[in-house]
């Protein structure tokens, strides 16, 4: 049976064919079933079901774009577009503000590009911005896309996103949580938003890179 690229529904039996059970599958009475709507993917001997919809579920070392929603004495509370809020402690930032003055560095509504540092057993999410490339985001536009489509937007080895960047000259920062930061000329940014929505809708189509290339060439 050809496993890859098949759409499965919750409860659909999957013959894993000697591969190992990956994400998105459950085991019952000697058989494997999909537990969500998604595409089957075989990777490193593991069979996974890649969701086609749904919320973002954080995993360690993901890089996300987060928005400050609350300030506590020694940490910030941030929204990362998932069911749970995330926390950023002062010790995990390059700054050393006086206690109680966190608002001077990051205020409510500010955005950061951060890494998921730790997820505790009770689903507390701790972020960090102590790594090159991670920073406070200033200016630009924020849009959200389906988190499961982010890898499609990046493309193989970044081919898709680099093509868009080169063609339009817009700076793009993608968070695994489906939040995208764009900065450039307003018309170009609007063009990129259209293209991202196109990729999101057509994410299961083959030959998508070519379709996007022809769109970019047309708009130039």
């Amino acid at each position: 049976m050809d496993l890859s690229k098949k759409i499965v529904l919750p409860g659909e039996e999957i013959d894993i064919n000697g591969f190992k059970q990956g994400n998105g599958l459950y085991f019952e009475d000697g058989k494997y079933y999909s537990y969500q709507l998604g595409l089957i993917q075989v990777y490193n001997n593991f069979v996974n079901v890649i969701p086609l919809s749904g919320k973002y579920f954080p995993s360690k070392n993901d890089k996300v774009i987060a928005k400050v929603i609350e300030i506590a004495p020694s940490f910030w509370v941030l929204d990362i577009n998932s069911p749970y809020p995330a926390f950023l402690h002062v010790n995990d930032t390059p700054w050393k503000p006086a206690s109680g003055e966190l608002g001077k560095i990051l205020n409510v509504g500010d955005t950061v590009y951060a890494k998921i540092n730790e997820i505790t057993e009770s689903r507390q999410i701790w972020l960090s911005i102590k790594e090159p490339g991670l920073r406070k985001i200033e200016g630009g536009h924020i849009i959200t896309v389906q988190p499961s489509k982010v890898s499609r937007i990046i493309g193989k080895g970044g081919s898709m996103v680099n093509m868009i960047k080169e063609s339009t000259g817009v700076k793009i920062q993608l968070g695994q949580n489906g939040v995208v930061w764009l900065d450039g000329e307003p018309e170009k940014v609007l063009e990129v938003i259209k293209i991202l929505k196109f990729i999101e809708e057509e994410s299961t189509a083959s030959g998508l890179t070519d379709a996007v290339r022809s769109r970019l060439e047309k708009s130039r």
Binding site: P10, E28, Y33, Y35, Q36, L37, G38, G54
Partner: peptide, 11 residues
């Protein structure tokens, strides 16, 4: 629920 991508045993 399936459209929302929520994990479940079956519809």
């Amino acid at each position: 629920l399936a459209d929302a991508g929520i994990p479940m045993k079956d519809l």
